[in-house]
């Protein structure tokens, strides 16, 4: 099952290390602007757009963020 892992930038290294620990270091990652918590709806929409662009790039070109 193809999986894409999504997180905000300060947690990217931890997410990558956790994936490594689980033997999943090849999982594609999408890294978006921090924070996601405590922001307004319009900013959430911007984060979604940011994630969308990267998801497309990851899936079509096989590159992680």
């Amino acid at each position: 099952m193809p999986v894409v892992l999504l997180c905000t930038k300060p947690f990217a290294a931890l997410a990558r290390a956790t994936a490594f620990g689980l033997g999943l270091e090849q999982v594609p990652m999408v890294v978006i602007t921090h924070p996601l918590a405590g922001i307004h709806d319009t900013d959430v929409a911007d984060r979604a757009a940011e994630a969308y662009e990267q998801v497309m790039r990851v899936l079509t070109q096989g590159e992680g963020a």
């Binding site: 099952m1 193809p2 999986v3 894409v4 999504l6 997180c7 947690f11 997410a15 999408v30 921090h34």
Partner: peptide, 15 residues
């Protein structure tokens, strides 16, 4: 459930 239904999974990690 996700494995049964989906072709791709997007999962969140971090804040």
């Amino acid at each position: 459930d996700v494995a049964r239904q989906c072709d791709l999974v997007i999962t969140g990690s971090g804040d």
